[in-house]
Design a binder for these strands. Sequence first.
DNA 1: GTACCACCTCAAGTTGACTTGAGGTCAAGG
DNA 2: CCTTGACCTCAAGTCAACTTGAGGTGGTAC
Lengths: 143, 143
Amino acid sequence: MDIAEVAKRSGVPASTLRFYEEKGLIKSVGRLGLRRVFEVNILERLALIALGQAAGFSLDEIAQMVGVNGNPNIDRELLAKKADELDSTIQKLIAMRDGLRHAAVCSAPSHMECPKFRRLLGLAASGAIKSGGLDQLTKRRRS
Amino acid sequence: MDIAEVAKRSGVPASTLRFYEEKGLIKSVGRLGLRRVFEVNILERLALIALGQAAGFSLDEIAQMVGVNGNPNIDRELLAKKADELDSTIQKLIAMRDGLRHAAVCSAPSHMECPKFRRLLGLAASGAIKSGGLDQLTKRRRS
DNA sequence: GTACCACCTCAAGTTGACTTGAGGTCAAGG
DNA sequence: CCTTGACCTCAAGTCAACTTGAGGTGGTAC
């Protein structure tokens, strides 16, 4: 496959593919003239990268997880750690989703005054306010 | 509360608080001299913002949801839409979490060759490859 | 009453993740 | 053969979300 086909089938622009290759996130198997040639499995790798991004991981973190070389990482501890990180994110997002869903139908004057909304918010942000800061929620993105 | 206390209790740097105020995401109730004064409920609002960010929403989107004015938005349709968006993100993250968890213990030579891993990945990226592109996964962030 | 220091403003810098543009190259079709 | 267009490189630009810095201000403790 040439870069245009990968772009078409993955939805990832060619410029981004070149950028990812430069970063070591993906690699082409060779060149035909000066054109890059990719294997079909590049598509799975791209899906994995997109997934990692949706999970809020930086490209560098993703590289760590999927391995800069060919195939996913061997560092089982890192993978487990990232899974746990992701799990706590998921809990927060679930609470937020429920908060949003409720807010969409709740008739309280201000959502902040609705006990249900506040409970969900508290659940999501548990531990964030007062002692410890919101850091837990945001440091992943900040770093 | 002055800005330093808000910063301390929320974990959000003062510079960020000023930045958020400028963007209309938060507001101070007044000034004492030239110093901003915040109400205690600013902490909840900040938790909500942090939550929105963890969910991958941009500050502008968050402003739309929580309302640029004082309290959350009245646009129930928008809230429901965002909740659905969030829900599909959550499904992907769950699949990825499970994929990571499994990868951490799986002994297949390459995770891409492990059927279980591929199934989870496929689940997460369903529809992303081949027809439609990965766009669904990433456009939220790109916008 | 004055010195200090935390807070202020406003402009510019930073980082991550890309995109855009200018100028060059080469495989394929005519 | 030779033109053409898709691909190449490399440098610079962009955007969101902040951070940093220089220079100013004013409650508060001494």
